[in-house]
Simulated scan of single mutants.
Amino acid sequence: MSTAVATPPATPTVTARKGKLSFPHLLRSEWIKFWSVRSTFWTLAIFLFTVVALVVLITLAIHNAPPESQGGPSDADRSDPLNAFQAAVYLGQFAVAILGALTITGEYTTGMIRTSLTAAPKRLPVLWSKGLVAALSMLAFSLVTVAASAGLQWLFFNGVGIGVDLGNSQQVRALFGTALYIATIGVLAFAFGALMRHSAAAVSTILGLLLVIPIIFAIVPWKPLKYVEPFLPGSAGQSITMTDAQIAQNVAGTVGAHLTAWQGYGVLVAWVVVVLGVAAYLLKRRDA
């Protein structure tokens, strides 16, 4: 008599699929992270309110200023709609700079950067995707802010001769350049954040370059500083926010390089490339 031995059924072998984290996947992930942080909405809201309110208020102040014979602005300055934008952007840019720095330093503060770099061991795609999402988001929001400011200025003050002329290529280029400058400042702050990996250090550095150092260069009577000042990121980049006539008026009687609008913006881009390049090199070399 024989005994039947039950043979256990063969278990099929399941081969785990290796997932590939592509660059579009990284972009989607960074997009979600960028817009899921409350600081993004707060800083962009502050930027929008600051720029729009200041453009309207400064335009109102220029319109109500006394005539030139009584110490007020000249007739050319009074009718130039871009003067209000320059003062508004000078203050509003700091909110975007802070956002750009926090986009990357916030992950180092929370330790989330380790998870990101574990998912993408090559590291640099993480940096590029973060920077691209931040740059496109800040550029789009800057364009909306500039358009809203120009629209309100035209709505309230076009009847008194203060409003952007869309048929004037110089004014249109300056308006687009204003949004481009703001977004690029945000990317520069992002680059310093990637380099320093600390929020306070990155924010202090970018604000120092935009606010403190230009004032020091202006008040210290040392001629070599006058030759360096046109190549500071803020001084050079702001030329793209002005018409050629405004640039010529600003550089009249000054020493050093006289940069055109696109030359000045090229200097600002060079700052971004150098700082971001150093940050990328150190990201590959340092521990997270």
Rank of each mutant, 00 (worst) to 15 (best):
T40V: 02
P73L: 12
A76I: 08
F47C: 05
T13A: 13
G71A: 02
I58T: 12
S36W: 08
F85L: 13
I62D: 14
G72K: 05
P66K: 15
V51T: 08
G19D: 14
T15I: 13
P12W: 11
V37I: 13
L54F: 06
K20L: 09
A88V: 02
F23N: 10
K20Q: 11
F47I: 01
F34S: 05
V51P: 01
R28E: 12
I58H: 11
S29Y: 05
T50S: 10
L82F: 05
K20A: 09
P73I: 08
P24V: 08
A76F: 07
H63M: 02
F34G: 03
S22W: 01
A65V: 05
T59K: 11
A10I: 05
W35L: 08
R28G: 06
T40I: 06
V55K: 09
F41P: 00
T40G: 02
R17V: 14
S69L: 07
F47S: 07
W31N: 03
V14Y: 15
L21V: 14
T43G: 00
I32S: 13
A45V: 04
P67G: 13
V52W: 01
S79M: 12
L26D: 08
S69F: 03
S74D: 06
P67V: 11
E68R: 09
E30F: 03
L44F: 08
P12R: 15
T59Y: 11
V52M: 02
W31S: 08
A65S: 13
A61G: 00
I62F: 15
S39F: 03
N64P: 00
D75M: 13
A16G: 07
A87L: 15
W31V: 01
T11D: 12
G19T: 09
L26F: 01
P24R: 13
K33P: 02
R78D: 07
I62V: 15
L57M: 13
L57Y: 09
R78I: 03
K18A: 11
Q70H: 08
L44G: 03
P81L: 04
F49P: 01
L82V: 05
P66Q: 15
L57I: 10
I32N: 12
T11W: 10
I62A: 14
S74V: 01
A16C: 03
